[in-house]
Structures are given as C-alpha cells and as structure tokens.
Amino acid sequence: MDAERVEPTPSTAWLIGLAAWFLPGSGHLLLRKWGRAALMGGAVWVCFLVGLAMGGHLFYVNMEGATSFLQWPVVIQIPPMAADVGSGIPYIVCWLLDFGFRDDPAQAARATYEYGTTFLLIAGLLNYLTMLDAFDIAAGRKS
C-alpha cells in the first residue's frame, strides 16, 4: 500500500518567504518574476508610503499602564500590530525612527488620519499575501 507522497518544502522557499516579508517585492525578484515583483511589491510600497503621507498611525504593543499581556487594552493592540508588521522593513525603519507611532492629537485630527491608518494596515496584509505567493512559487506549488 502506497502512502501519499509528501514533497518536502525546499529550504530556499522559506528563505524567499522571509525575504519577501522583509523587503516587499524582493521574494519575486529573487524568483525572477519581474512583473509580479513590480506589481505586488510596488502595490505594497505605494500603499505604505501613501498611508504614511496621509498621517496614518502605526501600531505596536504599548504596555504603558498595563501589568500583563492579557489585559484588554494590550490584547486589542495585537491584531493591528500584526497587520502593520507585515510590511517588513518599512515598519522596522519607522519603528527605529519613531515615525508614525506616537499618539499625537494633531496627527489624529488630520482628515486623512483614518484613511492613512487603513492604508498602513492594508499594506502589511497585502505583503503577507505577496509573501505567501512567493513562498508557494519557490516551493513549486504554483507557477
């Protein structure tokens, strides 16, 4: 009786997936999928930069005033942070420069603040899709 053969995932697929997350578009560039890299990576970059230009807010888990991770004000920050982290290096650079993370009332008063925040969240989520696409191509699951 033959068991169903499961092809192991090549280690390069994991590296390409990691690269695709870290630098949007780079996964497809490594796979020499130039068109996809330009379209998908470009969409993520444009989405992120437009979000920042609109004065959007980036999320991180702020433990100020909380005593544990399980408190609601902390827990509620995890999903948007997970979405923002998906952007990879742009998120990390903004975090290092402390740009877009502050709870600034003047920034929040901008008419485009909510739109910008949504663009930043969507940039991260789109990059997760881009990363999975690059991973699947590298693993030979799609062309």
Binding site: L39, M40, C47, I122, L126, T130
Partner: peptide, 15 residues
C-alpha cells in the same frame, strides 16, 4: 479608488 486599485493588483496577481 487608489485603495481598490492596489488591493485589486495584489488579488489579481495571486489568483
């Protein structure tokens, strides 16, 4: 429109 276009590009490319 920009948001829709960016999302459509990625959705279209992966499917």
């Amino acid at each position: 429109a920009l948001f829709a276009a960016l999302a459509a590009i990625v959705f279209g490319a992966i499917s």
